[in-house]
Design a protein around this nucleic acid. Structure first.
Lengths: 337, 337
DNA sequence: AATGGGATTGTAATCGTTTTCAACCCCATT
DNA sequence: AATGGGGTTGAAAACGATTACAATCCCATT
């Protein structure tokens, strides 16, 4: 069942059928009526493969994620989905798991016209290559940015966020502050590390490399990291985790080792924990997690809008924006016990 | 830059270029060489819109999810992604948020040839419509099934899983066992409810409707549910949650009300909790969560394989399979304290 | 030298749409 | 009655690839 069948059925030409399908004006009410009833009868639906080729559009956008498991991304994804549902676009996701081959494979979906644009959550691209991509195709970078690349990106100020968190811990009297970070795969990590160091420095606290532990963004990573930190001969009294998923594991580890006890009565001071992201779960932990809030809904919504702007504007998208959204230090129990 | 440009550049015909691109035999080593270097020089990449139309394939499959936020789905998605990465398919996700309009919109991506097949995680379709879809397009139902519909589906035995969990609680001496379930949007819920009831009945315990609380599959839902159950004049001594995301909130609520205390010394008995799914987080809670394990990796992998089989087999896919994978009761702390 | 056949290449149709341009009809205006 | 113009429609050319079929070439065999 194709457009020609409807044409034959109604005795009209394919052009007219097409016009009806696309709500063009200049088609008489009678023929429109006739075509529509024929379509209804036969259950005809247009073949997008033909249409896509002709108009050179896919009405699909690609979301490139480093990992599928992190609720932080899920929440942003949800916002993007919501926007997409209100548009005529559907979203397609690609997970790279830090495999550069896959990163390229996904990027090539732009050149091969499989998608109209992309939102990437990665940052460790070659800046020249990335600039190149961005100049040719609709592309926005979300939650990250690549130093020196010309591409519109949107994120929070990670340096300041980390600074705020660590400064807060210092103000609470902590001087031995550990950090559990990712593997420097993201620009956000370097920034958070910079903020961490700036806070220490400003307070006159010496930076101790052994307090900086590397993990992946999972509870297990945080769990092992916290165990390692607490095994030092002079363990930290507070831990800053670069992601709430990490913090979950940190809290678990500290609970196991007795360094955190909700409603503790033995007079020992609990180790303080602050995370990053403010995923929905963080209010459900015991103790509830203090963290640096990222406006995930806004990040997702705005990314989508920025991408749409580029897609609709056409190829003269020379101007790139670098947008920072506000973060917020959210104090719950884990830093207060 | 299209295939014709390469043809002109090399003085060959488009057919030959196409043959080189698709690794056809019967193209002489010299011309292949010549074409390949021309491609390398110009950076030509084929336009998939043209190719897709011609071969009538998109090399994309759609995953229809009820929600984006549940880690249970994320983990299955991860498995599907992994499979897809090893194939020439990319996955596309659609989230319905229980909106029937969206469900249909996503299903129509099959008829409009936007995707080659779909894996759905929903179950509340009209069985006739669903059978119709499945007979015409590659389609598998994952984690759910629809009574009376002819469609291959794969899931665990939810009835038995719930039965196992509740029976275990009964064996531990509980007789007042609450349940927090979803809103009957899924077949799996009805099955779990049936299992819950069967276990009670077998033990001679009367089913009490007020012990059955309805929530959505979020920690917040579980939180409110548990609070409600504990507010009854005769509160349950154990709670079976229909999903680990729910159980997270249940544990939080019980911790707050003092019905759960890790390492409790006051002699009061903790309320036991068992969840469902065994998401990665469940080992990171305090207390760690006892739950009914679902083989998420296998569910994802197998779904993908089944879909590929249908896609490759062509339109004579008359036979449908209904596959059950093994669940497993995983006992951790939350049912033992 | 003629024949046959396998390997290689080219021609042109095809996939299902959209869209330009021309053609047509009908009616009001002159 | 001729003209002009708006409103509708159709014919045919795209879009960029794949592929059936025909054509050609080259070489071994007779």
């Amino acid at each position: 069942m194709k457009i020609k069948d409807i044409a034959n059925l109604t005795g009209l030409s394919v052009a007219t059928i097409s016009r009806v399908m696309n709500n063009h004006p200049n088609v008489s009410p009678e023929t429109r009526e006739k075509v529509e009833s024929a379509i209804a009868e036969t259950g005809y639906v247009p073949n997008f493969l033909g249409r896509n080729l002709r108009v050179s559009k896919t009405h699909k956008i690609l979301i490139i994620l480093p990992t599928a498991g992190n609720p932080f991304y899920s929440e942003i994804l949800e916002a993007i989905q919501e926007q997409a549902n209100h548009s005529e676009y559907t979203i397609l996701i690609g997970v790279t798991n830090e495999d550069p081959t896959l990163e390229n494979k996904y990027m090539e979906m732009l050149t091969t016209k499989q998608v109209d644009g992309a939102i990437t959550f990665l940052s460790k691209y070659d800046k020249y290559a990335l600039t190149q991509w961005a100049s040719q195709y609709p592309l926005v970078q979300c939650c990250e940015y690549t130093e020196g690349a010309q591409i519109t990106n949107i994120s929070v100020d990670n340096e300041q966020g980390a600074y705020d968190a660590v400064s807060y811990l210092i103000r609470k009297g902590h001087t031995r502050i550990g950090a559990i970070r990712g593997q420097l795969y993201f620009a956000s990590e370097s920034d958070r590390t910079a903020g961490y160091k700036r806070a220490l420095e400003q307070a006159g606290i010496k930076y101790r490399p052994e307090y900086c532990h590397i993990a992946d963004y999972t509870p297990e990573g945080g769990f092992r990291g916290a165990k390692a930190l607490m095994a030092l001969e002079e363990p930290p009294t507070a831990i800053f985790a670069y992601g709430d998923t990490i913090a979950i594991g940190v809290i678990k580890a500290l609970s196991e080792t007795g360094h955190i006890r909700v409603g503790r009565t033995d007079g020992v001071r609990n180790v303080a924990v602050i995370g990053f992201d403010d995923i929905q779960l963080s209010g459900m932990l015991s103790p509830t997690l203090s963290t640096v809030y990222q406006p995930k809904y806004e990040l997702g919504k705005k990314s989508f809008r920025l991408l749409m702007d580029q897609i609709n504007k056409g190829s003269d998208n020379k101007e790139c924006y670098s947008i920072k959204l506000m973060h917020k230090l959210v104090i719950r129990e884990s830093s207060e016990l």
